[in-house]
Design a binder for these strands. Sequence first.
DNA 1: TTGATAAATTATACCGTTATAATTATAATG
DNA 2: CATTATAATTATAACGGTATAATTTATCAA
Lengths: 236, 236
Amino acid sequence: MLKYQHIAAEIEKYIQEHALQQGDKLPVLDELMVQFGVSKSTIIKSLELLEERGVIFQVRGSGIFVRRHGRKGYISLLKNQGFTRDLDHFPITSQVLELSVRKPTREAATNLNISMEQDVYYVKRVRYIYEQTLCVEESYYNKAIVTYLNNEIVSDSIFDYIREGLGLKIGFSDSYLHVGKLEEEEAGHLGLHKGDPKLDVETIFHLANGQPFDFSRITYNYIQSQFFIQANGHGM
Amino acid sequence: MLKYQHIAAEIEKYIQEHALQQGDKLPVLDELMVQFGVSKSTIIKSLELLEERGVIFQVRGSGIFVRRHGRKGYISLLKNQGFTRDLDHFPITSQVLELSVRKPTREAATNLNISMEQDVYYVKRVRYIYEQTLCVEESYYNKAIVTYLNNEIVSDSIFDYIREGLGLKIGFSDSYLHVGKLEEEEAGHLGLHKGDPKLDVETIFHLANGQPFDFSRITYNYIQSQFFIQANGHGM
DNA sequence: TTGATAAATTATACCGTTATAATTATAATG
DNA sequence: CATTATAATTATAACGGTATAATTTATCAA
């Protein structure tokens, strides 16, 4: 693990263990430098990482402060690993409805940037939180990249497997959100009624080298659907 | 304007003017250094900014590449200025339903971190795209920070006024999303029916020094509601 | 006490450099 | 020709430093 990542993790751990609240001040830069025995630029890199993740914010001339969202049980739309992290104190289970190799739909092929003759893994899952259905997920994985999947992997965390099992580096993702009304079939899976509200999230996941490897559409149960986004000033 | 911001803007302009597509390669670091006549760290800072904004991605050992989302007409959930930027080719208009000084609700007071006796500006607007209603927005501005508002400002861009008119620096924001069914009153404003789907987005906007100054809830017309989010690997 | 002014604190911009890791291109090998 | 080894390219990590801008604190004057 890189120095700056390690330091960032240490600082984050410190914040959690000491239950620091929004606005609480952290040690100043020079102090952190001495404390961790690294150069200024390394500390700055760590702090930038934490700022990007929404853990802290920095004010020139003033200091480094804790930033914490108060609401629990919300799913982050930025960490694209979703539930596993945010809802880790909640009992999440998966039911695999289908796992097969097939040809992609036109839409999937376009988003994965492959031809319609190339093979993909198709995965359809229902996710539960407590006894309630959380969402239905349909995913297409480019089989040229994600060469192998089985029921065990798919029941667990596919992304962990891609990282550790296949040794691939996951990069960025583009998500598109739509609100609409449930179709009959979707409503059945979610235990809701046709015409009820739904949130569809389409995401294209890319490797660190820019190749798209996963196109997925998740349909959320509107009753369980709470999301949050932390935006930083630079994007504005 | 800072050097690295200026360079980032130049690079972004270059990408747009030359209509570069996803995957197209930009000049290498050393070349950019020479081209802009600045040090390596400054170029790196510019590229980090563009990466954070989802404009480019970098691959070690390979190069700097263009990243572009293909779909038009989607509202970014990260640039919290919303429409003005994303939909700037679409005719967006506002109708101010109310502008008044009042005491905040308990919820607004909590989120603005003030007491219920302190004054706030209350703004209620409907936003239209083409002839369709896009959303209804209710906002509470801490009057101790946003000292003055009038109808003209509120019809235009409140955030531009806060930045330029009041000289305040806007920092980060926390947004919370819920999907639900429209109430009678909301449906009326949006030209929809009670029980139709809706997306509620609550956002707390902070100044760069961490003070919350605006708490707003936007209810979107589900028919016009298309959003996108670009996530970067570091957050994962 | 108040208000203005100066000083100290603190994060940020920017410079320059060395070392390293990932990728890609090239050469060597069978 | 395919495979492997090597070299070149390229972004990233990490060091250390000076200058600057924003904020907070201390100082002083009224």
